[in-house]
Write a protein that binds this DNA or RNA. Structure first.
Lengths: 235, 235
DNA sequence: CGTGTGATTGACGCCTGTCAACGTCTGTGG
DNA sequence: CCACAGACGTTGACAGGCGTCAATCACACG
C-alpha cells in the first residue's frame, strides 16, 4: 500500500526514460534529489489553488491530478488531467505569475515537489533540460490552441465524443474496454464545457446508438470508430 | 515608406529593451544578426501555413499578423494577433511539430526570419534567453487556458464585449477612441467563435446601448466600463 | 457598369442551458 | 438495523440564445 512512499527519486520520476530529467548530469541529479521532497496526497486534496503563489512545481510519481480553472459562478473548467510522469505548476513558477489553475487529486497520488530555484537553475544551466521543458510547454500550448478551436466550433455532442476518445487515448481501457479513468458526470461536463444534464442526455444517446455502454461511472467503449466520426477526429 | 527595410537588426527587434534577445552576448548577437534575414510582406500574405514544416521563427519588426487555426468546414479560429516585438512560429520549431496554425499578414509587415538552428542554439547555450522564451511561452499558455474557460462558459455576447476590451488593451485607441486595429465582421466572429451574423447583431445592440459607435470597420469605444461589465472582466 | 466582397436584416428552428422534481446510492449516527 | 442526509444521476418541461439560410444593401474596383 505504502510501497511507493519508499521509492527514492531515482526509482521515481527522475530516471524514467522519457522523463524530462533524463538529460541531467549526475551532479544535477544529486542536487534535485537533495532539494526535492516527496509527499502523499489523498483523493480530493488540493495541491495548489488558483490565485495563490506557488514556489515550486510537482512531478507526479503516481496518481491522477485534475487541473482546472474556476470560471463564472464558480463553475470549474477542467484544463487537463496530469498523470504519472507529468509535471504541474511549472507554468506559474517560470512565468512568475500566480497560479492560474487549481490542482486537485483524483486518484491517491504521490508527488515530488521541486523548488522554484532548482527548476530555474536547471533551465538556466542545462540546455538539454531547457529544450525538453520548452518542448513540453510548446506541446501543451499546441493542444490548448486545438482545444480552443474545438470548443469554439464544435457542438457539445461532438466535443463529448472527442473527449471520450481523448480519455481513452490518455488513460486507456481495462480488459473490458472500460475507461480507466472514473469521472462524475459533472466533471465530464466541466471538460466539455457544458451542463451536467447535457452530458447525461448525450451519454444516453451514445448508449442508445450502441457507441458506449454505461454502468454508473463506468463507460465501456463499444464503437471507437463511431465516436471518432461523431467527434470529427482524424487521427 | 521603405525606411524600415534598411533597419539593421540592432535597430530592430534585437535590441528592444523588452525583447527576449536582450540577454544575448555580443557574440550571440552577431551570430543572430548574421543568420537572420529580414523580409517584407504585404497584406494578405501567408507567412506559414498550418500543417507545413517551418524551419525557423519570425520576429515581427513591424506590422500585425493574424494567427489562426482552420477548423470544421474551413472556418478559421483566430488564436491571437502578433504585433511588433512578438515572435511567431517558435512553438512548432521547438516542439518539432508541423505548424499548427497559419500566420497571415493583416497590416503590411516586416519580419525577421531566424533559422531553427539559431533558435535552438540560443535556448541551449544562453540560460537567460532560455528563461525569457520559457516565460513567454508560459504566459501564452496561461492566456490560452483562460480563453478556453471563457469560450466554454461565457455567452457570445459576453465574449464579444471581452474581445473588444482586449483589442483595445492590445492595440489601443486613436485620438477619437477608435480601435486601432481594423477587422472584418467575419474576423471578429472568428475570434469570438461565433457566426458573422451574430457579431453584427450584437455590435448593433452594443451601439444601441451606447457602448460603442460604428462606422464601417471603425469601432469607437464609448463606454469601456459597460463593456467590461458585460464581459464579466475584473481587471 | 458589372462583379465581387463584405455588411445587414429577417425568418426559422434546433441545440443547449436552466429549473424542478425525483430516483439511487453510500455513509453516518442513533 | 433503520432512518436520514447528502452527493450524484436522471428525466421532463421550457425558453431563449445562437446558428443557418436567404435576400438585400453598400461599396470598391477593374
Amino acid at each position: 500500500m505504502n510501497s511507493f512512499q519508499t521509492l527514492s527519486c531515482k526509482d521515481g520520476c527522475l530516471d524514467r526514460s522519457n522523463s524530462i530529467f533524463k538529460h541531467l548530469t549526475p551532479d544535477e541529479l544529486e542536487k534535485v534529489t537533495f532539494d526535492k521532497s516527496t509527499e502523499q496526497f489523498k483523493r480530493g486534496s488540493i495541491i495548489y489553488r488558483e490565485g495563490s503563489r506557488i514556489n515550486g512545481c510537482y512531478c507526479i510519481q503516481k496518481g491522477i491530478i485534475k487541473v482546472f480553472k474556476t470560471g463564472i459562478d464558480g463553475k470549474e473548467q477542467i484544463i487537463r488531467f496530469a498523470r504519472t510522469g507529468d509535471i504541474i505548476g511549472f507554468r506559474s513558477v517560470l512565468s512568475n505569475e500566480l497560479a492560474c489553475t487549481t490542482a486537485e487529486v483524483l486518484d491517491e497520488a504521490s508527488l515530488c515537489y521541486i523548488p522554484a530555484e532548482t527548476l530555474v537553475y536547471l533551465v538556466k544551466h542545462n540546455g538539454n533540460f531547457s529544450m525538453e521543458l520548452m518542448q513540453l510547454t510548446c506541446k501543451e500550448l499546441g493542444e490548448a490552441n486545438t482545444y480552443i478551436t474545438d470548443i469554439a466550433q464544435k457542438t457539445v455532442r461532438e466535443r463529448l465524443a472527442e473527449i471520450l476518445i481523448h480519455l481513452k487515448n490518455d488513460f486507456g481501457l481495462d480488459e473490458n474496454n472500460i475507461l480507466q479513468i472514473s469521472l462524475t458526470r459533472e466533471e465530464l461536463a466541466n471538460i466539455v464545457g457544458t451542463a451536467t444534464e447535457s452530458v447525461i442526455r448525450l451519454l444516453s444517446e451514445f448508449k442508445h446508438d450502441q457507441l458506449i455502454e454505461l454502468n454508473g461511472r463506468k463507460i465501456r467503449i463499444l464503437d471507437e470508430a463511431g465516436l471518432i466520426r461523431i467527434g470529427n477526429l482524424y487521427n
